[in-house]
């Protein structure tokens, strides 16, 4: 029962996390910051806006909603398995990649140069970060020796898979667009990338999706690193949120080619560890 309640409260929790993130960020920057409930007000305001039809492209219209749905569906598996079947982690990975694909489609179909550049950057980075995401999650799942997230009950895998943990954390930073890896949005360069042309309800969906993605990774990472205990999961997710904010507050943005360069080293290390895991080598 609590699983269902959690699943229904996910959008609210995501927006709350967003508010906390903004508040922490503001405190880092010596500001008071917006109220914690500000993201709720933002979303409510955007939903009350009149619908603008700037494009007739169906992809432009429906990509944000599909982006939102594909990310929301992830919470059926993470952190509590409401649905569980064999090899469902492949399905989870598929859903995250699908979400990124809808994000790219949203930008490409918006027919705006900045949106197209944002999508192009996302595609360039997708080549590298989605592969790493797949490799790291496979490493974790193989190490735990399970075939679905429902059976996942290993603890402290961060000690046995240190490089994959680091790789997964950096990947999540790219996924949730935190500096130094927020090149795909880069407000001062390309005005927010794929979101440039959106307004009203669709923009609300785009923004909420990003909050959902942030919550998803803030829950997935502690679950894989430390275990699936409900008591530790939420505090640890707040810790990861804090780490994202710390990174956001203390770094500047890489250019897209620099991200690629930095990230390819991590991908190589992660791949090496994956091969070692396949051979059954242990660090600890």
């Amino acid at each position: 029962m609590y699983k269902i309640i959690f699943f229904l409260s996910v959008p609210f929790l995501a927006l709350l996390y967003e508010g906390v993130l903004r508040k922490i960020n503001a405190r880092f920057q010596n500001r008071i910051g917006p109220p914690v409930l500000q993201p709720f007000y933002d979303v409510l305001k955007l939903f009350s806006k009149k619908k603008m039809k700037s494009q007739n492209d169906p992809f432009f219209k429906y990509s944000p909603i599909l982006y939102f749905i594909s990310l929301y569906a992830l919470f059926l598996f993470i952190p509590f398995s409401i649905v569980s079947f064999e090899h469902d982690f492949i399905f989870v990975l598929y859903l995250t990649i699908l979400a990124s694909a809808f994000y790219v489609l949203a930008g490409l179909s918006s027919d705006n140069p900045f949106g197209i550049i944002g999508s192009a950057r996302e595609m360039i980075l997708m080549i590298i970060y989605e592969i790493t995401l797949v490799i790291t999650v496979f490493s974790f799942v193989m190490k735990a020796g399970v075939i679905s997230f429902g059976d996942f009950n290993s603890r402290l895998l961060i000690l046995t898979l240190p490089i994959s943990s680091l790789g997964l954390f950096v990947t999540s930073m790219i996924e949730v667009h935190v500096t130094p890896f927020d090149t795909t949005e880069a407000p001062t360069e390309i005005m927010g990338g794929s979101r440039t042309e959106y307004s009203g309800t669709n923009l609300a969906f785009m923004n909420m999706s990003m909050s959902l993605k942030r919550l998803f990774f803030a829950l997935l990472l502690p679950m894989l690193f430390f275990g699936k205990d409900i008591i530790t999961l939420l505090p640890l997710s707040i810790l990861f949120l804090f780490l994202y904010t710390l990174s956001q507050a203390t770094t500047s943005r890489y250019r897209v080619d620099q991200v690629f360069k930095v990230y390819s080293i991590i991908m190589f290390l992660v791949l090496v560890e994956f091969i070692l895991v396949m051979w059954g080598v242990r660090w600890v």
């Binding site: 920057q29 010596n30 500001r31 500096t179 001062t188 956001q248 770094t251 500047s252 943005r253």
Partner: peptide, 11 residues
Amino acid sequence: HEIGYETLFMY
């Protein structure tokens, strides 16, 4: 701010 370092901007 242009290179995305908002904290330094505020400081």
